[in-house]
Amino acid sequence: MHLQMKVCIFSTCIVDLLFPNVGKAMVEVLERFGCETVFPKGQVCCGQPTYNSGYSKETIKTFYNEIDALLSVEADYIVGPSGSCVAMLKEYKDILKDDPAYAQKAQILYDKTYEFTQFIYRVLGILDCGAQLDATATFHRSCHMTRLLKERTAPFVLLDHVKDLKMIPLNNVQLCCGFGGTFSAKEPEISEAMVDDKVNNIVATKAQVLIGADQACLMNIGGRMNRRGEKIKVMHIAEVLNHNVDLKRVKYVKDTDHQMVPANGSGVF
């Protein structure tokens, strides 16, 4: 075994406030694969709710707080269960590039931070987490993870290796679910039409489980499905990769003939 890797948990405010199971699953998976985790309590939120609403000045101190908190502990990596929030942390580098006190810290944050599935697949080099889930499922590909973080393949590779899980492709996977942070609450009419489109495509797959790597999107889609009375189980990918794990099934990329799939897949057109 290598020296133990130290991972700082970036929980995201939405997991802190509403979805403890997602955070638990992520910590358990990381620890299972030999990471020592640490959770700095000063962290609050990546700042997207206000920054993306136009309150850029008011949000600067939120960025400072998050940087100070996440860098307050010695860790090799910072890992979070959300492509969108992680992409925001990585944007600090550009937003604060002229900030004498924080430019360098933002760069350190940028270099250390990974989204959960990215970290498992690309950093730890794990192909099969040893999980099992006897179900049909479809995956919602979140926009910020795909287009800002530019990671569009890691979750699919990992899900393909969950025992007994049958993945069904989602029609129009490229379309936004209509969450968009405060957009969903500020423009409910448009957001509703968008999420209905997404729900219709999910229902058409007849999948038993909806999986995603961004809990906020799942909260939006699931919330709409519950309102419409559509039957489905919603799981964050960390919960799936933490389900019925048998360590005997765990496989590392280096021990197989698997070729690492590039983050942008076959390219973007």
Binding site: P20, F39, S184, E187, P188, S191, V195, G223, R224, R227
Partner: peptide
């Protein structure tokens, strides 16, 4: 209106009990 914007369209999860939230769990777990 921001609350209505969300709740009029979709359901909102009730937060966990304080002792059950992620931070409490993490402390206990450690």
């Amino acid at each position: 209106s921001l609350i209505h914007g969300w709740v009029d369209v979709r359901d909102l999860a009730e937060p966990p009990k304080v002792k059950e939230n992620f931070r409490h769990w993490y402390d206990r777990h450690q």
